[in-house]
Design a binder for these strands. Structure first.
Lengths: 241, 241
DNA sequence: CGGTTCGTTGATCTATCTCAATTAATGTGG
DNA sequence: CCACATTAATTGAGATAGATCAACGAACCG
């Protein structure tokens, strides 16, 4: 597992060019790491954390609970993602954050963030840019649940997670770890667990994917992208200019 | 119609406390205004504008076009909203922006933004915070299309627009101007125009609203909020601490 | 190895879509 | 300012993607 500082610097270089002084600073700015087991709340909705965090390993999600008891997953968080810079400026969290698989996060005090953004304009812009990319991803999710049918929604989620894990080198043999249960996938796509099950069956029998032992293999990347109308532009993955 | 500088300062004061120097600076930072007639593209998807903008009057929206020809409206833009700081850091716009009613926008050069965010940390944080609120709104929309039925979706959109217009004083007699056609409302909620029509009929006959002459009157605010599960927390409307 | 969670399948139901036609507004050129 | 063209709203009838209810087998976990 990469060291906190390495991952943070690597992520930042995709956001904004770093001077060597800034890079050194980034390597020292975190306070500690913490571990979470699977399906555990990391922050509750309404929490007022005094730190933001960087996911080091595992998979997590942002979610909202409805009064009817259903859950909408609003985003997935993969290693290398900063979360949540949200609470740094908005104080109270308007959604919960939970682990999906066991995960590790490194914490960065809001006070430290405030100091570094004051003294290093480039880092402030980089962080800001990260929140813009998060926003772009949310917009893509609105489109996903608003406009696409079940097959496309699920294909799109798979493509997104694959593409984001690829950046941090967490893919192997055209596949990725897949700790997401069918009911969590339903929560992310606004579908029933039962319907997710039938839809996955369809994607499997179309030869696009296989899904076994918590591992997703993508047999036909282009086909899956076409099915999910996935274009990675919104993720802004290419390194910073 | 309020002057550009006034509106900008007023908006900023909701985001971050301003020194009097910063306030003066804000009043001079814009370059010019431009006007748009109804249903006109302001920026195309893929555009690379060299300015961000502040909406002075009218109503606009962000949208994405699907290959099938359908449109998903991703957000509404009301007077006082900055758009889009998106392109300031991400360069190319990943969605289009169009007017709904005739509107006026004031432009701010990216170059100016870059300078002011470098020299004024508070303004940088304020702008960043604005993009975080936009992100929170997008997440709320994911929930809206992912979890709520037609009645609730439409009620929620009405509550959001009312609440946001109230902040800038664009309400009158418990109502707001409503230039949004049924088919645009369908694009925002992921519903068919026909179904929007029937759903509006339901909201009307439940005594929650009336909708005539492009004017929405809300007869039962609490009832409408309940129907749409609307809670304004995510809009972060209260003035900056 | 027994309990809980997760995945699979069947049968039925319903919110919303589609297609289609009509009326009401709104806008425009002469 | 009117006739005509276009866009927006309304209503009906029929189709369907996805929901709901229910039951059971498979995997995982302490």
């Amino acid at each position: 597992m990469p060291v906190f500082g390495d991952l943070l610097v690597r992520r930042f270089k995709c956001l904004y060019p770093l001077s060597s002084g800034e890079e050194a600073f980034l390597r020292t700015m975190w306070s500690r790491t913490s571990d979470f087991s699977a399906r555990q709340d990391i922050y509750y909705e309404g929490a007022r954390p005094d730190s933001s965090a960087l996911l080091l390993s595992g998979l997590a999600c942002r979610y909202r609970l409805m009064s009817s008891g259903t859950r909408q997953i609003i985003a997935f968080i993969v290693p290398g993602d900063l979360f949540d810079t949200q609470s740094f400026l908005l104080r109270t969290l308007d959604h919960g954050i939970a682990s999906i698989s066991p995960c590790t996060a490194g914490l960065i005090k809001h006070k430290t963030l405030m100091e570094i953004t004051r003294s290093h304009h480039g880092i402030a812009l980089g962080l800001w840019k990260a929140t813009l990319i998060e926003g772009a991803t949310s917009r893509e999710w609105i489109v996903n649940v608003g406009q696409r049918n079940a097959h496309a929604r699920i294909a799109h989620v798979m493509c997104e997670i694959y593409a984001r894990l690829a950046v941090v080198g967490h893919t192997a043999d055209g596949g990725i770890p897949w700790p997401i249960t069918q009911s969590a996938l339903g929560d992310a796509t606004g579908l029933t667990q039962v319907h997710v099950n039938r839809t996955l069956k369809g994607l499997r029998s179309d030869g696009l994917i296989t899904l076994e032992n918590r591992w997703l293999t993508i047999h036909d990347w282009d086909g899956l992208c076409r099915r999910g109308e996935f274009e990675n532009r919104y993720l802004h993955l290419s390194p910073a200019a």
